[in-house]
Design a protein around this nucleic acid. Sequence first.
DNA 1: TCGGTATGTCAAAGATACCTGACATTGAGG
DNA 2: CCTCAATGTCAGGTATCTTTGACATACCGA
Lengths: 82, 82
Amino acid sequence: MGKPTNVTNSIRALRFSANEMTQAGLADRVDMTRQTIIAIEQGRYSPSLEVAFKIARVFNVPLDEVFHYPEESSSTATSAKK
Amino acid sequence: MGKPTNVTNSIRALRFSANEMTQAGLADRVDMTRQTIIAIEQGRYSPSLEVAFKIARVFNVPLDEVFHYPEESSSTATSAKK
DNA sequence: TCGGTATGTCAAAGATACCTGACATTGAGG
DNA sequence: CCTCAATGTCAGGTATCTTTGACATACCGA
C-alpha cells in the first residue's frame, strides 16, 4: 500500500561480508524485529534515521555506505507546488 | 508524547550558512511543511531516511554532516536483550 | 523422515512521523 | 501604532513505520 521508497540499501551484502550474519542476528543487535529487517532489506519502506544509524554502526561503516539516495531525476522535477 | 530522539542535527546552522534560508524556504525545497521542519530542527523526532537525504541534498553536504548519532553510551549498553 | 535454522509472507494492532489549520510571539520598518 | 515576516505552539487527523504472532518454504544434518 505504502509507496515503495526511493532509498536503496546494501544490507544483504553487508550481512554476508560480516561473517554471514543472519537477519535475526542483525535484528537482535539493533533491537528490532526480524520482520522489520526483512522489510527494510527488501526496500519496502525506508526506516527512521535512528534505525538507519544503528544498522550502519553494526557494520562499522558510514551511513551512506548502507543506504543510497538516487539523483533527483532531473526531468520535470522540483517544481510541483500547490 | 513521543520519545525524544537520540539524533541531533545542524540544520539551523546550515540554514544560516546557506544565505539565511528561512524554515519556510527549506520546507518548500524539500516539499514538506514548515511545522515538520521546526520539529525536526528541534529534535522532537527523527525524520525518515528519505527526508533526511532530501535535506542534506539541499545544503549540498553528506548526510552525516547534518545529522549526528551519539556514541553508544558505553555504560550499561550492548547487553540488553529480552 | 523428522528437527532445526534461515528466510519470507500475511493480517491486525500500536507507535511515530507528517499534515492541515489556527493562533501567539518577537523584531524590523512604515 | 500598525503591519509584515519569521519562528513557535497546539489540536486533530492521515500516512507510514514497527511490532506481535502465526504460518509457509527450503535447506541441512542426524
